[in-house]
Amino acid sequence: IFDLVIIGAGISGLAAASAAHKTGQHVVVIDKGRRIGGRLSTRRADGFTFNHGAQFVTAKGDAFSAVLHAAETAGALARWQIADDKTAFAGSPTMRDLPVFMGQGLDIRQDMEIASIMPHPLTGTNNNGLCLTDKNGTNLLTRKLIVTAPAPQTARLLRDIEPAMAALADTALYAPCWTAMYGFDAMPIMPTLPIRNRDCAIGWAGLEQTRPHADQHYPAITIQASADWSQHWIEASKDEVIAALFDTLASETGVELPRPVMSAAHRWLYAKVIRPATIDTSIAPHGITNAGRSIAIAGDWLGGARVEHAYDSGLAAINALSI
Results as ranks from 00 to 15, higher is better:
D31G: 12
M102V: 01
S294Q: 09
A149G: 07
T87F: 02
K22L: 11
A244M: 08
I223V: 15
I318M: 08
N128L: 09
L130H: 02
M187H: 09
L68F: 00
I202N: 08
E252H: 04
V5I: 15
D312K: 11
W268H: 14
Q209M: 15
A20K: 08
A15N: 07
E235T: 15
L245R: 06
E240Y: 04
R34H: 07
L141G: 07
A20F: 05
T281S: 12
T248P: 06
L173C: 13
P121D: 14
G33T: 15
T154Q: 04
W229G: 14
C177H: 02
G33Q: 13
A19S: 14
I242P: 03
I117N: 04
G183F: 05
P258I: 12
T179Y: 00
R198S: 15
A180N: 08
S237D: 02
S282I: 06
D215M: 06
N319I: 07
G299T: 06
N127V: 01
A9M: 12
D3T: 12
R109N: 14
L145A: 05
D215G: 11
M181C: 08
R35N: 12
A66P: 00
D300F: 01
H286W: 14
H309L: 03
R44N: 12
R159V: 14
L157M: 09
P99L: 14
N139G: 07
L302Q: 09
S237A: 04
A45H: 11
L40F: 01
H21E: 10
I146G: 01
I318N: 05
A155F: 03
A151F: 00
D239Q: 09
I295Q: 00
S282E: 14
I108F: 02
G129E: 03
G314A: 12
V241N: 08
A265L: 05
G129F: 09
L157H: 01
A151N: 00
I295F: 01
I283V: 13
D85I: 10
P163D: 15
Q231M: 14
R293S: 13
H213D: 10
T154W: 00
L158P: 11
T133D: 12
V67C: 00
M118Y: 03
S65Y: 00
I6H: 03
D31A: 12
G38W: 00
S230W: 02
T248M: 14
H52T: 07
S294C: 03
A180S: 15
R44F: 10
M262K: 02
D46E: 11
